[in-house]
Design a protein around this nucleic acid. Structure first.
Lengths: 185, 185
DNA sequence: ACCTGAACACCGTTCAAGT
DNA sequence: ACCTGAACACCGTTCAAGT
């Protein structure tokens, strides 16, 4: 075993990663979600190749930029597991999810664009957090849901609508889904 | 009035347009929906700027390439207006629409990407053909549909799912929508 | 082990010059 | 009126050289 093999990243490396994320957040807000990598790297004060190594794909960078927001969304889901009405809780969360996706349209599309091989650890982490939150909410609401409906179905319909149309219309569609997937009782 | 003002396009112009569409169809099939414009122009034997003038935006070119297929889809919708069961007819058409969108993912996304100003006559024609077909099918099925559901809602949910996930999953979701949006009777 | 920035390749877009 | 193809600009990606 070489002496360094179990150490974390070098100090400058992790500092650069943090700078890149901060710079990306700024630039994306200013110039839109398809801002050039060069601009972000320059803003962070690092070489462009450094950006590319830390975040090999655009989706990775977006995941990193929105990590806090995603964590908050998943926390909110966990708290909603304690809410009195399971179906209310599920759709309240789906509504928030829809708004989230609508403003991160680029990330949602990047997610479906990425060919399977190119998917990254960072990317998987993000995906797993969202799906596990949805799964738990759906499990709890299960008695009031139609049998065939899965958590993945709801996520796909909501994010598809959110990525395709505006936030307002997407939210309306999610509300419309609710009466569609719940059972009569 | 100048002598030419009411004539059609020059012979070489319309011949070039036809060649470009044919070349685009080939190249897109070979190299995927994001094939380079230069390649298509070279295949057609025309200058790249000629391609760009005939089809200012990528969506325009895709609309032209798939024009026949879209026409067939709308014809099918019109014929389904004669089918005995209005709801069956509507969802049979939505299913075909879903398959169509799933294989033309690039076009669906281009449609939502295009900023309003850049939308072209050709693009509008395409959009209008689809929505008017859906409208007529929904009108006929209206008595069996929940009041709040519009044709646009169904198109958005179906195309959102189709563009986001695979064709198979999207079709499942459309089938799932059916029991959601129809009334008990 | 990580960083740098220049170099490369690719592609959309425009434009002056042709017919 | 329409076409041509070269020129321009931009940007993702890679790589040899540094520390």
């Amino acid at each position: 075993m070489s002496p360094d093999s179990k150490r974390g990243p070098r100090a400058d490396a992790s500092r650069n990663a943090a700078r890149l994320v901060a710079a990306a957040r700024e630039v994306l807000a200013e110039a839109g979600n398809d801002a050039a990598f060069d601009v972000i790297a320059r803003r962070a004060g690092v070489g462009n190749a450094t950006l590319y190594r830390h975040f090999p794909t655009r989706a990775d960078l977006l995941v990193a930029v929105y990590a806090d927001e995603v964590a908050a969304l998943c926390d909110r889901g966990t708290r909603l597991l304690e809410a009195p009405e399971p179906v209310d809780a599920l759709f309240a969360w789906l509504d928030e999810f829809t708004v989230h996706v609508a403003t991160k349209r680029a990330l949602a599309l990047a997610a479906t664009e990425e060919t399977a091989e190119r998917r990254t650890a960072l990317f998987h982490q993000w995906h797993a957090a969202i799906t596990s939150t949805a799964d738990r909410l759906v499990d709890r609401a299960r008695p009031a849901l139609r049998d065939e409906v899965t958590a993945l179905d709801l996520l796909t319909l909501a994010s598809g609508a959110a990525a395709t149309t505006g936030a307002a219309h997407a939210r309306r569609l999610v509300a419309l889904l609710r009466t569609g997937v719940t059972t009569g009782g």
